[in-house]
Design a protein around this nucleic acid. Structure first.
Lengths: 176, 176
DNA sequence: CGAGACTATATCTATGTTGATATAGTCCTC
DNA sequence: GAGGACTATATCAACATAGATATAGTCTCG
């Protein structure tokens, strides 16, 4: 269960509210991990029951009352266990983009080129957005660099597929 | 919902049973998409209700009776819509490895090196396994190449982190 | 002072996903 | 012919995730 650990990781910086956690995840961990409030709030409650965080209710600075969560010593221990990789299931990785393109045979060659170009644009957009996003610190910054490099690898791959496709479309399609 | 479409994609080759679908996913789409039987069987039933596949029950060749699913014309249309990217939510991507390493600050510098080396080994193993796995055809083969390139990008990233870490561990740690 | 943006928490429903377990026939090997 | 590996389907419970919606106070700007 990575979400709980990601939350612990973010709380190890400083205490935060559920709302802030969502914002930081979106800002600093995009394409690595994110979650909806509907997952964050119950998860914080669970972390609290496990004694990994504790809650302090503050009067509102702005808006409603603020439930500020703070990590405990046990929480830090748990975080370290996770980071050290001594827990953690294999966590089946999935890639919707690669999954879709794996079935590109389903389209006729003319359409393929179009899809590949669209995909390349989409990847470029994501890369630019990541690069221009608000900077993070320490290993969180490095992790974002890792994401960018992954996306660039995928973009190179898409591009090479596009070139192959273009070649096979221009040469007379010799029926095999 | 990608699983249904992946199943349609695999059925667009040839009719298969749920069992075979699981095997092919594991063999050809590892690290791209996979699912347990408990997800595949209900999903096939749903695809059937939607008219995207139909079912033929065969006597057992070996083992129990075989429920062989075959894609319909409507199923192929749906597959093409998906591949062309005209459906599809943004599908939040997640990366458990990057997520964990983003919080490497939680460990003391001595431990970091160890974790990074372990991670690099793990990535190398996965890459070798993918490369030596049974070959796929067409774009499915390309997709696997794409996976390998993503993993290699991550491995390069881990390696560069390791070098940084080594440098900062050997130089006298000037407290900032 | 009213509109709209922002901060916040909370909850519901539906769907996706994992892991475990039950059942059972067939084939191979010793 | 007994045991074990393999083929197959099926279902359960638990948990993860997405998306939508309700509520409400505060701040800013005109």
């Amino acid at each position: 269960m990575s979400l709980s650990h990601v939350l612990l990781g973010l709380l190890s910086d400083q205490p935060r509210t559920g709302y802030e956690l969502e914002r930081v995840m979106r800002a600093e961990l995009d394409s690595i991990w994110r979650a909806e409030y509907s997952q964050i709030y119950p998860d914080l409650a669970r972390l609290r029951r496990s004694g990994f965080v504790f809650l302090r209710v503050l009067g509102p600075r702005r808006g409603p009352r603020r439930n500020v969560y703070r990590i405990t010593a046990a929480g830090r221990r748990e975080l370290r266990r996770w980071v050290a990789g001594r827990l953690e299931a294999p966590a089946a990785e999935k890639d919707p983009t690669l999954a879709r393109l794996a079935f590109l045979d389903a389209l006729d060659p003319l359409e393929r080129m179009e899809i590949l170009l669209a995909e390349e644009r989409r990847l470029s957009d994501r890369i630019t957005r990541l690069r221009t996003a608000s900077p993070a610190r320490g290993f969180r910054r490095e992790a974002r660099r890792g994401t960018v490099e992954k996306l660039e690898a995928t973009r190179r791959w898409v591009r090479s597929l596009g070139q192959q496709t273009a070649r096979s479309a221009s040469t007379p399609p010799k029926k095999k």
